[in-house]
C-alpha cells in the first residue's frame, strides 16, 4: 500500500511549551490510522497543524497525490480543504446549527457550486446550467444522507438533530468535499455503544468504498481497536509506539503511558 501522508520531524511550540516534539509517522492510502495517547499528549495539536489552523514551528508534512507529493505547510486556512483536499471534523461538533441538514452538505460543496453559479451571475440569471449543477449537489447530499439514514430529516435544522446524528452528519459533510485524507477528531466521543458501532461501519465504508485515507484521534478503545489498521501512540508530544492494533494492545510502553509505572 502506498503512502498517503508523511509527517516528518513535526515540532510545535507555544511559547516555552513543546506540544509536539519531533514527530514522524506515515499514513497509508485506504487505511485507518489512529493517533492515541493520554490527555494532553498533543493529538489535537497534530491535527491543527495538518489542517492549517496552526503553523508548525518545525518539520514537514507531505500529502502524496496522484500528481505528486505536496507540502501541507504551504497551505493554510481554507486552502487545506479547498486545494489540498484534506477534510476534518472537530472534537466539539461544529455544524451550522441554524441551517438545515441539506444546507450543511451544500456549503461543503461551496467551491464547485460557486464556479457553477458563475460566481453568482449565472445563478442570479437562473440559468439551466447552474440549476443542473445544483441538482447534482443535492443528489450527492442525498447519497450521503441515505448512507447515514438521515434523508428524511434533510430539511430540519442541523442543531435539532440528536447528538449521535450530528456526529455522523459532520463526517459526511466533510466527505462532501471529496477529500483525499479525512481527519477525525474524537468522532466517538459521547456516543453510546450502538452509535459507536454505526460509526465503525460508516468509517469502514468510507475507507473501502471511497478509497479515502482516514486519520483518527480517539479515546474510545473499542473504536480504535475495532477499525484501525495502524496505530501511533503519543505521550507528551513524542511518539512512543507505532504498530498494528494488536501490537499496541500488548506494548509495554503504551501500557506504562496510560497506567503509569510502578516505581
Amino acid at each position: 500500500m502506498s503512502n498517503l501522508l508523511s509527517v516528518e520531524n513535526l515540532t510545535m511550540q507555544f511559547g516555552g511549551l513543546t506540544a509536539i516534539d519531533n514527530l514522524s509517522f506515515d499514513a497509508k492510502n485506504n487505511e485507518i490510522t489512529s493517533i492515541i495517547g493520554p490527555n494532553g499528549a498533543g493529538k489535537t495539536t497534530v491535527f491543527n497543524c495538518l489542517t492549517g489552523f496552526y503553523k508548525p514551528t518545525n518539520g514537514q508534512m507531505f500529502l502524496h497525490k496522484d500528481e505528486g507529493k505536496i507540502s501541507l505547510r504551504k497551505y493554510t486556512d481554507f486552502k487545506i480543504a479547498h486545494v489540498a483536499k484534506v477534510a476534518r471534523t472537530f472534537q466539539n461538533i461544529r455544524l451550522f446549527p441554524a441551517m438545515s441538514v441539506l444546507e450543511n452538505l451544500l456549503v461543503a460543496q461551496h467551491n464547485e457550486l460557486m464556479v457553477a453559479s458563475g460566481y453568482s451571475l449565472f445563478g442570479l440569471l437562473n440559468l439551466k446550467s447552474y440549476r443542473d449543477k445544483e441538482q447534482l449537489a443535492v443528489d450527492k447530499a442525498r447519497y450521503w444522507l441515505d448512507i447515514i439514514g438521515l434523508t428524511n430529516r434533510a430539511d430540519d435544522n442541523a442543531g435539532d438533530l440528536p447528538y449521535g446524528d450530528q456526529r455522523k452528519l459532520e463526517i459526511v459533510r466533510a466527505m462532501c468535499i471529496e477529500p483525499k485524507l479525512l481527519c477525525l477528531d474524537e468522532p466517538a466521543a459521547g456516543l453510546n455503544p450502538k452509535e459507536s458501532a454505526e460509526l465503525n461501519k460508516l468509517l469502514k465504508f468510507i475507507k473501502t468504498e471511497k478509497k479515502t485515507g482516514i486519520l483518527l484521534i480517539e479515546h474510545d478503545m473499542s473504536v480504535v481497536m475495532g477499525i484501525s489498521d495502524h496505530v501511533v501512540v503519543l505521550n507528551y508530544g513524542k511518539k512512543i509506539f507505532e504498530g498494528t492494533a494488536d501490537q499496541t494492545k500488548t506494548s509495554k510502553e503504551v501500557i506504562e503511558a496510560y497506567l503509569g509505572v510502578d516505581e
Binding site: F78, K79, A81, R173
Partner: peptide, 9 residues
C-alpha cells in the same frame, strides 16, 4: 472555523 475546514474562503 467550520467554514474554513470545508474550504470556504
Amino acid at each position: 472555523i467550520a467554514c474554513k475546514s470545508l474550504g470556504v474562503n
